[in-house]
């Protein structure tokens, strides 16, 4: 058994995938962080203080996990959903009544979205009350504010997609608020809705924003956000 493991991990194929040995010693534990694209956002070594649950409450990781989970359930929903005024609503009904686990999937996506907004807000409050925005972390705080706004945007654009009364009027009210912005208001509203009122054009645009534009930006910014935590010296907890 040991020799078989050895043969595999010593093989040329294995060595071409992983450029380090079993991460059970300091060198390989450093290499696993620096050579792995997912781990390289983390530091090689972390301060024990920053791992204390009562300090960070894990809210950043929770938000990130919810984003990943929403991406997965969202992609699965895309297999059934059609963003047209005629078919969106019947599709959601069919998803809930005929597709195996369809209702569960929609529930996961919906409640996950609400939880992500909540987690992002709480995360911001945590960072504020622990003074973790202080130099040299100013830039990362701003990235965080942008991420919060984008999270609201992602949730808001997704709200229209079921095309039921709840979503239609919520978006009508929400976009009407934008039109009161004195300079660009009516233009912003027209660009968002693609017309004077919520209709097929609005559904198309919200769909494109919801499944592609906003998640892509969020993905980039979350990566930047986590990488920047490492570059700014880890969590602020190890400052004192």
């Amino acid at each position: 058994m040991a020799s078989l493991t050895n043969t595999i991990t010593q093989s040329r194929v294995w060595r071409s995938f992983f450029r380090h040995g079993m991460p059970n010693n300091p060198l390989d534990r450093s290499l696993v962080m620096t050579t792995n694209i997912f781990f390289h956002l983390h530091p090689v070594k972390v301060n024990l203080k920053s791992l204390k649950a009562t300090y960070s409450l894990g809210l950043g990781i929770i938000t990130t996990f919810l984003f990943v989970s929403l991406s997965v359930s969202g992609i699965l929903l895309m297999f059934y959903y059609v963003p047209t005024v005629e078919r969106a609503y019947p599709n959601i009904v069919a998803l809930q009544t005929q597709v195996p686990f369809g209702q569960l999937l929609r529930n996961l996506h919906r409640w996950g979205a609400h939880l992500m907004v909540l987690a992002a807000v709480l995360h911001m409050a945590r960072v504020f009350y622990t003074g973790a925005y202080k130099p040299p972390r100013e830039f990362n705080w701003i990235v965080g504010v942008l991420l919060l706004i984008l999270t609201l945007g992602a949730s808001f654009t997704g709200y229209l997609l079921p095309w039921d009364q709840l979503s239609f009027w919520a978006i009508t009210v929400g976009t009407s608020i934008a039109s009161y912005e004195p300079v660009m208001g009516s233009t912003v509203k027209k660009i968002l809705l693609g017309g004077p009122e919520v209709g097929q054009e609005a559904l198309t645009r919200f769909y494109a924003l919801h499944i592609m534009v906003i998640p892509a930006i969020i993905f980039l910014l979350i990566s930047l956000h986590i990488w920047r935590v490492r570059k700014d010296g880890g969590l602020a907890a190890n400052e004192n």
Binding site: Y89, Q103, D164, Q165, S167
Partner: peptide, 14 residues
Amino acid sequence: ALGKNAPLEELANP
């Protein structure tokens, strides 16, 4: 998700 279903009202009516 198992405990509460996502809401769905009737079809949008402008």
